Measured scan of single mutants.
Amino acid sequence: EVTIKANLIFANGSTQTAEFKGTFEKATSEAYAYADTLKKDNGEYTVDVADKGYTLNAKFAG
C-alpha cells in the first residue's frame, strides 16, 4: 500500500491537502478523480508530479 498526497492549489490562493491510499494505480486514480469533482466550481487544473509520482500538485485555474 502506498499513499499519494494531493496538494490542491486554488485560484484564490487557498490550498487543501488530501491523501489517497491503496496500490499506486488506485491511489493515483482516486486523486485525479477527486480533482475532477472540484473542476465544476474551481475550473480546469494542471498537475505537476513530484516525489516520483507520490505527490501531485494540482493548480486550479479558477
Score class of each variant (00 low, 15 high):
D41M: 12
G53S: 03
D36M: 05
I9L: 10
F60Y: 13
K59Q: 13
S14E: 13
Y45H: 02
S14C: 15
G62T: 07
Y45R: 02
S29R: 14
F60M: 01
L38G: 04
V47I: 14
N7Q: 07
N42W: 15
A18Q: 12
T3I: 13
A18P: 01
T46S: 10
D51I: 01
V2D: 03
Q16A: 12
T23F: 07
T37N: 12
I4F: 01
K59A: 10
F20V: 02
G53L: 00
N7C: 13
E44Y: 09
E1T: 12
G53R: 00
F24N: 04
G62R: 04
A18C: 15
K5R: 13
A11E: 08
Q16V: 13
N12Y: 05
F10Y: 06
T17M: 10
G43F: 02
D51L: 01
E44N: 11
E30R: 07
G13W: 03
N57K: 04
L8T: 02
I4L: 05
D41I: 12
L38P: 00
L38C: 09
K21Y: 13
T17P: 03
K52L: 13
E19I: 15
S29E: 14
Y34I: 02
E25S: 09
G13C: 09
D48F: 13
A27P: 02
F10M: 08
A61S: 14
A27V: 03
E44R: 07
G22T: 00
Y45W: 05
L38I: 05
K26E: 13
T3M: 07
F24C: 08
V2W: 05
N12V: 03
K26I: 11
A33P: 01
K52Y: 14
A33E: 09
Y34D: 00
F24E: 02
E44C: 13
E19A: 09
T46F: 09
Y54L: 14
G13K: 06
Y32R: 07
L8H: 02
Y32C: 08
K21S: 10
S29G: 09
L56T: 03
Q16M: 14
L56I: 15
N57C: 08
L8E: 01
T17V: 13
D36C: 07
V49R: 06
S14D: 13
E44D: 13
A6E: 04
L8F: 15
A18E: 09
E1M: 14
N7P: 01
K26G: 11
V49E: 07
A33F: 08
D41G: 09
D48K: 10
T37S: 15
A33H: 09
N57A: 04
F10Q: 02
A27C: 06
T37F: 13
D48G: 08
F10S: 03
G13E: 04
A11W: 09
V47A: 05
K59Y: 15
G22E: 01
N12P: 01
Y54H: 11
A31C: 06
T46E: 10
A31I: 07
D48V: 14
E44A: 11
K59M: 13
S14H: 13
F20Q: 00
G53C: 06
K52S: 14
I9G: 03
V49S: 09
G22L: 02
Y34T: 02
D41C: 15
V47M: 15
G22S: 04
N12W: 05
A31N: 00
A50C: 13
A11G: 08
F60H: 02
N12H: 06
Y45F: 08
T37L: 13
K59E: 09
T3P: 03
A33W: 08
F10A: 01
T15A: 09
D51M: 03
A11Q: 09
G22N: 05
G22A: 04
A50Q: 14
N7K: 07
D36E: 12
V49P: 05
T15M: 14
T17R: 09
A50L: 14
